[in-house]
């Protein structure tokens, strides 16, 4: 975990060396593949994808949103923040960006506070998976507040006068 280096990003992968793990191996390795296959079957029995979870992924097809612009996470206090000494449960600060639109969100146990930039009114849906959501409104200064999102991944879909922006899914 902690000793796992983080320097290989997705873009580092090229097409070389791709191939099934069961491909070319030295002769001595013959039963290596057998053991791996046996282990694969054991995993399928003892640690499969839970059925309910598979169902959620199937339903997630409804989340494709080809018209909205995705606001990517550009700041996350969990990753980029400096812990405040003495504060055991600091608020989670998130910043999402899609071109000129910025959404700042602060999540605490008590609720969610946000700021849309450039400032302006917007209708906001809090998405919690494919089905449930809550509705919020950003005032003329782009400020909005709401209840803390439920556990699990969430996203915000913001409709300003001009466009629809949806924040990248993440866990609060």
């Amino acid at each position: 975990m902690s000793d796992m280096s983080d320097r290989h990003g997705f873009d580092d992968f090229d097409g070389s060396g791709d191939g099934p793990p069961g491909g070319e191996f030295p002769a001595d390795d013959w039963d290596c593949g057998l053991l791996e296959e046996e282990l694969r079957q054991a995993a399928a029995i003892l640690d499969p994808v839970p059925a309910g979870l598979r169902g959620i992924a199937v339903d997630a097809f409804a989340l494709r949103d080809l018209d909205a612009r995705v606001a990517e996470l550009t700041f996350d206090s969990l990753v980029d923040g400096i812990p405040v000494r003495g504060e055991s449960d600091p608020p989670r600060m998130l910043t999402f960006q899609a071109d000129a639109v910025t959404v700042d969100v602060e999540v605490t146990e008590d609720g969610l506070i946000g700021q849309l930039l450039p400032p302006g009114p917007a209708r906001i849906e809090v998405l919690s998976g494919p089905r449930e959501y809550a509705r919020l409104t950003a005032d003329d200064l782009g400020r909005f507040t709401g209840e803390a999102p439920p556990s699990g991944p969430f996203a915000l879909r913001l409709r300003t006068g001009r466009e629809v922006v949806v924040t990248e899914w993440l866990r609060a």
């Binding site: 979870l53 959620i56 992924a57 997630a60 097809f61 409804a62 989340l63 494709r64 949103d65 995705v70 998976g129 699990g152 991944p153 996203a155 949806v166 990248e168 899914w169 993440l170 866990r171």
Partner: peptide, 9 residues
Amino acid sequence: QTAWFRFAQ
């Protein structure tokens, strides 16, 4: 869930 939601997105 996060991985699949993001992929859908």
